[in-house]
Simulated assay, not measured.
Amino acid sequence: MSAVRIAAKVLPANTGIVILHGLGDTANGFPRTIANYLRGIPAFEQTSFILPDAPISPVSLNNGYKMPSWFDIYELSAHPSRVDADGFMKSLGVIEKCVQEHIDAGIKPENIVVCGFSQGAALSLSSAATLPVKIGAFAAFSGFVTIPNQLRQIKKDHNLDTPIFHGHGDSDPVVPLEGGFIAKDFYQNDCGFKNIQFEVYKGMDHSVCPEEMDQFVKFLKRALKMK
């Protein structure tokens, strides 16, 4: 598994965070930016990070151009008629491996977080329904739901009450806010998740903003019972 691994500033690590990038990005883009931001906060000095890299593969939406992608995208739609379920499930397996790597390093599952941006956010949300172990929290920046039919059939109940943070901009042209609301409704109503914090940021496009990062950090501290 190709990934950037960042050791805790103070050892031993007692918290582990997995961060997944979006389409066309790499571990050294958005994930490393978030990891570096958190590493500058004293509460996270014993946190280690795993930032996996998506494989380089053709993306149908971009005329088959090859780029880092967790799964193929055929159309930009809140209700796509065709999805890459196989690619999506394979990438969910990457998350499971990252979580297990943190556990094997001695980090308790309740101190592990999975988060991601865009494609990575879609995966982080879905992993809440598929991970075979209960962890500390999930977070999604501009997330959406991709394989609802499959998730209904395979979902597990380990993380039904695990805290989930989902932030979305109301001016997002890539993943419109409607897609965020659809994901929220799906995971609450269809999957039964009980602890979703959904935040909308006025004027924010397909990105993150300081207010979102501030709320994300507060969310993590609550979920992981940090001081």
Rank of each mutant, 00 (worst) to 15 (best):
I154T: 08
P52A: 06
Q215E: 15
L151I: 10
T26F: 01
A8G: 06
P109E: 02
S48P: 08
H158D: 00
I107K: 00
V99R: 05
C98L: 02
V217E: 14
S118F: 00
D84Q: 00
I182L: 13
S48W: 13
K97M: 14
K221L: 03
G87E: 11
G40Q: 06
A3M: 10
A105W: 07
F193A: 04
H79S: 11
T26D: 13
A122D: 08
A3G: 06
L131C: 02
Y65L: 15
G22I: 06
C98I: 06
T130G: 00
D185E: 15
D170Y: 10
Q188M: 04
G87H: 08
F165L: 02
L20A: 08
I154W: 00
K155P: 04
N36K: 15
I112T: 04
G136K: 07
M226P: 06
G179F: 07
S81F: 07
P176N: 07
K156N: 06
K90S: 08
K225C: 12
S48K: 14
L131I: 06
P42C: 10
D214Y: 14
V59L: 01
D25Y: 00
E96R: 07
V99T: 09
C115Y: 07
A78Q: 09
D161A: 11
N149A: 13
F144M: 03
F219A: 14
D214S: 14
